[in-house]
Each structure stands twice: as C-alpha cells, then as structure tokens.
Amino acid sequence: MANPHVTRERIDQEVRAALATTLRIEADTIEMEQSIINDLGATSIDFLDINFRLEQVFGIQLASQLLLDHVEEELGEGTAIDRDNKITAGAAALLKEQFGPDAPIDAGMYADEIPAFVTAGSIATAVEKILDHLADACTCGASEWKSEDGAKVVCGACGAEAVYPDGDELTKGWIHDVQREKQLFAVS
C-alpha cells in the first residue's frame, strides 16, 4: 500500500538535502548507496539532525534507535549482541533483511560496525516504509488525502495532517513478525 502522494524520487531528494545540510556537502554529489558514516563522514550524533529534518519535511517520526537495540529491548538482552559486543547469527540474519541479502554482515562482527551500513538509500527506505502506512481515511472520516508540496499529506476535507505510525512502533512490530516467521533469535 504505497503512498500515492509522495514519490520515491521526492524522498531521495529530501534525504540528499538533509544529508547535505547536516554534513555540509553538496547534495548532488551524494549517491544513494553511499555509507553515511564511511563515505560521507557522518557521526552518530549527525543521525539526529538528519532524521529531524526528514521528520519535519514529511510529518513522520523515524525510529529513534538502531535495529539491534530494538531487538534487545523486545526479545531480551543478549539475543542480538553478545557480551563481547559482537552480533549474533540471528542479528546478522535480521540485518540482512534490512540492508539486503548481499550486505557483508556476518555473525561475530562488532555491533559498532553496523551503523556504517546505513546508506542514503536505506534512510530513504525507512522514510518510505512509514509513509506507506497512510491510513485509508482521516480521523474526520474523509478519504480525500492530498499533498501540495509532495511531502506532507493533508486531509482534503478537514485540513488535518496525516498521522503515520511511529518508526519505533513499526520496527518493533516488524521484529516480532520476523521472529514469528523465522525464529531467528533464541528467546528463553
């Protein structure tokens, strides 16, 4: 159920703009497959700025922490990251679901290496996944969504901004769905 009011091109464009402003680089030099950390020089703190800008533009809330932190909160400490700060086999498999099957992620990698897999494209996908959850109808009952700027969606009847599920909630739900289906994590 894609969001017909916001195109992927628009999302990519806004991700480039957010990266360019935060990292003080030229937007048109950014490739969507570039690592935010390794190729563009971002630090973990920069993620806050990048996300904040995108949240303002699209009227969404992105996930506030990394996937493996969510896993550990949902399924228990040690399920995704072991005592040596290395990722488990289940965590590696889940990360491949997120970053694609070809991502060079293996069990035993240090958890600190994972943020480097975040790319401009993976951020855009995270935005897109939230936008795809546009409700069928506004709380006023009308099904007349429209967008004038191609980013914020508003109700054509009452003018209210569309409310999307929060990125943290979607991530948690996804973790439980994958766990139910594939049993990646040994939960005691």
Binding site: L23, I37, G41, A42, T43, I45, D46
Partner: peptide, 10 residues
C-alpha cells in the same frame, strides 16, 4: 571520544 571521522574533523 573518537580518533577518526567527522568528530575528529570537528
């Protein structure tokens, strides 16, 4: 804290 990357640049 970190030795490399953007924080070193800062």
């Amino acid at each position: 804290r970190s030795e490399g990357g953007a924080s070193r640049a800062h």
